[in-house]
Amino acid sequence: MNVIFENFALYRDGFFKTLLICAYAMVGSLVLGTILAGFRVSPVPPLRWIGTSWVNVFRNCPLTVVLFFCAFGLPEVGINGAYFWFSITALVLYTAAFVCEAVRSGINSVPAGQAEAARAVGLTFGQSLTTIILPQAIRTVVPPLGSVIIAMIKNSAIVGAFGVGGELFAVSDTLTGSRGEAALPVLTGIVIAYLLITLPAGAFLGWLERKVAIAR
């Protein structure tokens, strides 16, 4: 286990890099996913089509393929940029599809009477969605959204293979590769680092769930 202490700086930097990637990807996918869910339940057909196709495309594509298209497809059509942002883009595009479906299930769980009452007092679709439906819907989808986000954190491990240097999985490659360390202790360190992100995230979600719980 000495390898973890000897290379502590490397682990620490990798930990923060992964944390940063996850933070950006989480915010991005939650915002985009909620917007897509709004699209899917909207009365405007083209918006519904966009939402439905998005979910069908990205939810059914392996993340590796999405990453591949971002990291190698975008430069191919002349869009050059940092691999860090390409990877976050891919994570957001992919995770948003799952967030969208979780949020949509929450929207469907809100009794239809709520929407009808909102319309009856003269709220527009946008107003009733943002002020009446979504606040109630989000409360019920905290647990599934939590699972989606934790899955996303673990999914972020593969961005190391797409040009993002220095994140946790790249750290393990560096240590086991050029430095020739044994894989098992190195990976144990990586697992601990991931748990340091996912366990508090899980605890926070549990707290959030109790905090926003409503009695129906």
Partner: peptide
């Protein structure tokens, strides 16, 4: 560009 974990990368 190089490969993760390789000597040249270091």
């Amino acid at each position: 560009c190089s490969v993760t974990g390789s000597t040249p990368a270091e």
